[in-house]
Design a protein around this nucleic acid. Structure first.
Lengths: 337, 337
DNA sequence: AATTAAATTGATAACGTTGTCAATCTTCGT
DNA sequence: ACGAAGATTGACAACGTTATCAATTTAATT
């Protein structure tokens, strides 16, 4: 590891190519209205000097950066990585770069991360969910660029929201269970219904069942975070207390898979004795036998659309007003219901 | 969305608090040797003005930024998200921020992303794997900060490598199969063995079997990307051509799970008729029945260690010389072998 | 050919913070 | 009380690019 020489600047490139610094800048930053002759001279000089742009300097002068702040709860399940992939794809032919901060679902962390992110003058901010602390909201109010909230459309968007309707999802599964003839319906959630969008979904699920004359019979919401193991345990408990339950909707696919494994171990026939439905539509859940009935959320598409919308805003081709973009949540009929 | 006023600068804070600009700067950036009196005055003024730091300006003057470039192939499987979580955790109490670029395993994309990332004067660069194009290597040679390569330790590190030994992994599973009495061993890979580390693992697997007097009997490596479905299909084909195969090692857990599902469907007893082992140690694979035998790679720990090492380098508490940090790959004995 | 319009290039200073050195103040030791 | 050492504060200019306006050149129109 040898010490590197002082990096060449545009001044060096300009001198070597015999043009002004600002002309060299225009060439290296892809500006318009450059003659072929001048462009070739500058590119040749830059290459021979090994010139690398200084985006920091450009961002200071230009008053904004090509950084997109992405503040998400975690990368530990497939929801947010899929969103990142979609975001990444829609930004790949732009100079924009994703700067990632993870909150672990903590409001205080979201505030700290957002405050720090704003100090980088980002071109856009992407956040998860529609519910934020007052401090987060105050910070967002000082920000002038596009704010994209992903995941949820059932509430007031700060600026642009891209997601699925938790209410529509809850209603969809309620109608599915009812139309399938299930009359003793249960629900299992975890982690005290954090984030709040899972509670929105459950409430809508219950309300729709009620409207269909098929009121919910059992609800279990534990405090531990979701996992396959928790799904199995909670299914065991719910069935122990409610032996007539014939269908259960789970807050996510991990829980549902855990329940399915529990039923397989206990020789409980699925869906004949009890039907199971999950939420998110994880790939794995579609491949096992019996494949899981689930509500699929279009996470990649969410990320991609978020990326497209923020680009349009940055380009000025999308109006600077609040908008909500709802993507459909899809019932994936499997073999568990 | 109302137009925001011009943002207050340190000059405004300094004027309001009656100190110099540089003193205000020292307070806001956490510098040492500030009297309590002056600090209180500055903090009060900053708060009343709603001052937000300008990290861009500081990075330009200071010649480096608190950005860490992270260049990974994708977020679509659980390997890299786990690494990101580990990285994120070790950096959470630092001012460092992760800037993410995704290559989709393309050398050209890695070069383009790296070139752009370097123009941000990052504090460190994190890359996946030890194999890079000549252009990527040339770009890294112009960079003076810490370079962390994660995933692999079987090759020449550019600077710091953190990962598992693919060779040790291949040898471990070869010994496992042999000690279990399997004498007709197969291997299934996908995507033409991209990235190259999966070929390293297979070659070591085969060599170790050879050394143990138990030469491999069947190898299938298809061109499609890994998935559960591909695993099932390739298992069907391998068994059709090699009906005596009694154990198969897979390039990853997705493939192994697909094979397991295929065997369950075809009433092939696992592990009695054929044993199955995967690679990566995905959580799901440990929870299903029968739970998968697999080699677990410590991805979260990889990310965390990478984060710790780059911090030490930045602080100057780690020597500026090449180093390789190997984490153990662990045989998770399940019910499939 | 002359005039107008569009394209191209350059001059100037701005962006907001902080590295560095010097000056001043405070504390400690004799 | 004085001198030395350490802590604190401020002055100055630097960092590298580009927003903006003007000047010059080139192309199009009459």
């Amino acid at each position: 590891m040898v010490e590197k020489h002082k990096k060449p600047t545009l001044k060096d490139v300009a001198e070597l190519s015999g043009v002004s610094v600002i002309s060299a800048s225009r060439v290296m930053s892809g500006g318009p209205n450059i003659s072929q002759n001048l462009r070739r001279k500058v590119e040749l000089a830059a290459k021979s000097l090994g010139y690398q742009r200084n985006r920091i300097a450009g961002s200071l002068r230009g008053q904004t950066s090509d950084l997109v702040s992405v503040i998400l709860p975690s990368m530990s399940n497939n929801v947010f990585p899929n969103i990142m992939d979609g975001l990444s794809e829609s930004l790949q032919d732009t100079p924009l770069r994703l700067v990632l901060g993870m909150t672990q679902y903590s409001n205080v962390k979201e505030e700290d991360i957002l405050r720090d992110m704003l100090s980088w003058n980002p071109a856009a901010v992407v956040l998860a969910g529609l519910e934020h602390s007052a401090e987060t909201r105050a910070l967002l109010a000082t920000y002038d660029g596009p704010i994209i909230e992903v995941m949820d459309t059932d509430g007031e968007a700060t600026d642009i929201a891209v997601g699925v309707s938790q209410i529509a999802a809850g209603e969809l599964i309620a109608r599915h269970f009812t139309s399938r003839g299930y009359r003793n319906v249960g629900y299992i959630g975890a982690w005290g219904e954090r984030p709040v969008r899972s509670r929105k979904r459950r409430i809508a699920f219950e309300a729709e069942l009620e409207k269909l004359g098929n009121p919910i019979k059992a609800v279990r919401i534990c405090e531990e975070a979701s996992s396959i193991m928790i799904g199995a345990r909670e299914m065991e408990r719910l069935l122990a207390e409610n032996e007539h339950v014939d269908a259960v909707f789970f807050a996510n696919d991990d829980l549902a898979l855990g329940a399915l494994l529990y039923c397989q171990r206990e020789k409980i026939a699925v869906p004949q004795d009890v039907a199971i439905a999950g939420f998110n539509g994880m790939e794995m859940a579609q491949m096992i036998s019996p494949c899981l009935t689930t509500l699929r959320t279009p996470r990649f598409e969410m990320g991609r659309m978020a990326g497209e919308l923020l680009c349009q805003r940055i380009e000025g081709t999308l109006a600077r007003k609040q908008s909500v973009h709802e993507l459909p949540v899809t019932l994936i009929l499997g073999e568990t219901s």
